[in-house]
Every structure is written in structure tokens, then in C-alpha cells.
Computed example of a mutant assay.
Amino acid sequence: MDEFKVCSVEIERNLNVTIQGRPSRGELHAEISFESLDYEGNALNLGETVILEEEIPAFINILVKNGIIISALHNHWLYTEPKILYIHFQSVEPPLNFARKVAEAFKILR
């Protein structure tokens, strides 16, 4: 059996969020992972980030323009202020290509 490897990167989002009126920092991050390369240099690339409601349209537009699949957009928590959601995205391509495309979208996040 081939060895299976995953590389992941976590980026903290500097947001002031409350959940049920209590300050929260534990779930305010973005995570990108790159799985094992195939013989052509492609990997399964996965991403998830917490996103403010007003950031969604621009973020999605950049990902879609760059050929990244949006696999989910949903909440994790109720009673958040400001309203936060989580977006999941993916592709199969060289990891550096994915990273560059996602970095472009991250530039619009505050």
C-alpha cells in the first residue's frame, strides 16, 4: 500500500465574535490541506474558512473564477455576532496552484 500523506496549514482570523453573548476565538480560523500527490503532480486540495456574511459574495466569486469548487456554505453556531458562516472548497490540481488561487480570495477577507 502506498504511503498517504497530508500537509495542512491553519490561519487564524482576527475577528471579534461572540456566541450567545460570550467572546469566542476557538473556531475563527481557515484551514487548507493538501493530500498526497499523484504521478502527475496533482493532489486533492481542501479548504475551510470562517467567513463574515458580507465577505461571502466576493470570496465565492474569486474562487469560482479560479475554478475552485464550493462544496458547502453553512453555519456552525447559532446566536453569533457578527453573523459568521463556514465555507468549504476543493480542487484536484497541483497544490501550489490551489494555494495561489485561494490566496487571491483570502485578500478580500478583513
Results as ranks from 00 to 15, higher is better:
77 W>D: 04
59 F>P: 12
2 D>G: 01
34 F>R: 15
75 N>H: 15
82 P>E: 08
24 S>M: 10
21 G>W: 11
94 P>N: 14
82 P>K: 14
84 I>G: 11
24 S>H: 13
79 Y>W: 13
42 N>V: 04
69 I>E: 10
108 I>Y: 03
76 H>L: 06
99 A>S: 12
17 V>M: 11
6 V>M: 09
21 G>C: 04
7 C>F: 11
28 L>S: 08
97 N>F: 01
38 D>Q: 13
75 N>D: 07
4 F>Y: 12
3 E>H: 09
9 V>R: 15
32 I>H: 14
54 E>C: 02
14 N>C: 03
49 T>I: 08
15 L>Y: 15
68 I>A: 02
19 I>V: 07
4 F>T: 02
29 H>W: 12
91 S>F: 02
8 S>Q: 12
81 E>K: 15
69 I>N: 13
110 R>G: 03
45 N>S: 12
70 I>N: 09
34 F>Y: 15
18 T>F: 05
110 R>Q: 06
18 T>W: 09
31 E>C: 09
65 K>I: 00
64 V>F: 00
60 I>G: 01
95 P>E: 05
57 P>Q: 08
4 F>H: 13
59 F>W: 06
12 E>C: 02
66 N>A: 01
103 A>M: 04
30 A>I: 07
77 W>G: 06
8 S>K: 14
50 V>L: 09
67 G>R: 12
22 R>V: 05
40 E>Y: 08
80 T>K: 03
87 I>A: 05
41 G>R: 14
62 I>T: 04
80 T>V: 08
59 F>C: 02
49 T>E: 05
21 G>L: 02
110 R>A: 00
83 K>R: 15
26 G>K: 15
17 V>F: 04
98 F>K: 10
90 Q>C: 04
70 I>F: 01
35 E>P: 12
70 I>E: 04
43 A>E: 13
71 S>H: 08
45 N>K: 15
65 K>H: 08
96 L>S: 10
41 G>A: 11
109 L>F: 00
72 A>Q: 07
36 S>F: 08
85 L>F: 15
46 L>S: 11
107 K>F: 00
65 K>R: 14
96 L>H: 13
52 L>C: 04
54 E>L: 04
55 E>W: 02
42 N>M: 07
61 N>P: 01
69 I>T: 07
102 V>P: 10
49 T>Q: 09
73 L>C: 09
3 E>F: 05
37 L>D: 11
91 S>M: 02
94 P>R: 14
102 V>D: 06
19 I>W: 10
27 E>H: 12
5 K>C: 04
4 F>I: 05
55 E>S: 03
96 L>Q: 09
102 V>L: 00
23 P>E: 06
51 I>T: 10
42 N>G: 04
101 K>C: 00
72 A>R: 09
108 I>G: 03
50 V>Q: 12
99 A>D: 08
15 L>T: 12
72 A>V: 02
8 S>F: 08
43 A>Y: 13
